[in-house]
Amino acid sequence: MICSMKNPAIRRYMFRLMGTLIWYVCALVVSVGLFAHIHPTGALAWLLALLPALGIIGQLAVFGLYLGEETDEFQRNLQIQAMLWGIGGTLAFLTVWGFLEIFVHLRHFDLLLVYPLYCGLTGVSLGLVKMRYR
């Protein structure tokens, strides 16, 4: 989504993003492993199920921090426009899919795919938004 490592805000963003990705992968491995071997229940099951989600929530928070720290207002504007297109596109896609699920019995959309869908749409949007300013 974001490029140019010369910018200190972007460097901090990439560093923090790596942290959230490492958290996500480790938490996923731990959760999947423990669910497969000790079959946790109750509070422990809730905790283990939520651990990987913290990595994704962290990515959103890290992006928010980047927007707050980005001193180049034009670049910030591009990122915000792309994010809004990503959010709008995700909501539109899910709304259409929801109605198709109800009325034509399309298979259920896996909620774990919502975040990758948002990231993909935001990434494509960023490319298109940047083209407008060339």
Binding site: S4, T71, D72, E73, F74, Q75, K130, Y133
Partner: peptide, 22 residues
């Protein structure tokens, strides 16, 4: 200006109006 070259280009070509501070 401590901004990207793309920012200068967007302002110069009139595609982006800078904020008052900029």
């Amino acid at each position: 200006l401590e901004v990207s070259r793309q920012s200068v280009n967007a302002i110069e070509t009139g595609k982006y109006d800078p904020s008052l501070p900029l």
